[in-house]
């Protein structure tokens, strides 16, 4: 926490280096996320984007550098204080879990509310239910409450996952291409909803995205990643043709100019 007058730093990453076996997947990356900002990570496939966010969350261990979330350090092996964990929500890449798992929307969103401590299953049922109904109402999905997750459409699933993030107050949302596989119409609706909630909740967002137009429209900052950090800054600067060329190579820049 910083003194008033300064913008609070939600996430600080310094010289982060992550190896996957012997391959250096993320090399000496440093950046900060001030509270309330929306930062996009862009870069070609295999650039280490998912590795970077998974290391920031402690899902993968890191070998060099430091990660500080809400003022608390993340250990090399991925331990982070529980109070901080509660304030961070993460949606993995194309969250395609096994739809054969028997679960209702209420049960899934309820998992987002839970403290995940040792407790009897029926404890806090009423409070959980209240929070779940409230979260589903805010994403316009009240009617899905008792639906089975096996029957949801892609767009409905995204709303349900947003409710999973929303069901408890959070400070930081980390989205790994949370929208891939959604039709264009549904995508713009979803972003509208996401940014409305972001304003209301005061979320800070870190998201991986391939949609550079969306990034230009919505994001405050962009990180261009290709193992190392090639550039960072406001979208107009970071997504200039020169920087895109450096990140993606010539083919991608030609593609962007023709479309």
């Amino acid at each position: 926490m910083q003194a008033s007058g300064f913008q609070e730093i939600v996430l600080a990453v310094e010289h982060l280096t992550v190896y996957q076996e012997t391959y250096m997947a993320v090399q000496d990356v440093s950046f900060v996320l001030p509270a309330g900002t929306d930062t996009a990570i862009v870069g070609p496939n295999g650039a280490g984007k998912t590795t970077l966010v998974q290391a920031v969350l402690g899902i993968l261990p890191h070998q060099g550098g430091t990660v500080t979330l809400l003022g608390k350090p993340l250990s090399r092996r991925g331990y982070l204080a529980f109070q901080v964990r509660q304030q961070v929500a993460y949606l993995p890449q194309s969250f395609l879990f096994d739809r054969r798992i028997p679960m209702t929307v209420a049960e899934l969103v309820g998992l987002g509310w839970d403290q995940l401590k040792l407790q009897l299953p029926w404890i806090d049922n009423r409070r959980r239910r209240f929070a779940v109904e409230g979260a589903l109402y805010r994403v316009g999905a009240t009617h899905l409450l008792e639906q089975f997750i096996s029957g949801l459409s892609g767009g409905e699933m995204k709303r349900v996952l947003l409710a999973y993030c929303l069901v408890r107050p959070r400070r930081l949302l980390i989205l790994d291409e949370a929208l891939s596989g959604l039709d264009v119409q549904g995508e713009s609706d979803f972003y509208e909803l996401l940014y409305e909630l972001k304003r209301e909740e005061g979320w800070t967002i870190l998201q991986i995205s391939h949609d550079l137009d969306m990034v230009r429209r919505h994001c405050d900052r962009v990180l261009c990643l290709n193992r190392g950090l090639l550039c960072q800054g406001e979208p107009e600067v970071a997504l200039s043709p020169e920087n895109l060329f450096a990140a993606y190579g010539s083919a991608f820049v030609r593609y962007r100019h023709h479309h």
């Binding site: 993460y90 993995p92 798992i101 679960m103 899934l108 309820g110 998992l111 299953p121």
Partner: peptide, 16 residues
């Protein structure tokens, strides 16, 4: 509920 989350998606459980 911990088991449910692990069954649903391990990275999600680790992140929590």
């Amino acid at each position: 509920r911990i088991q449910m989350l692990i069954t649903l998606c391990e990275p999600l459980a680790i992140a929590r």
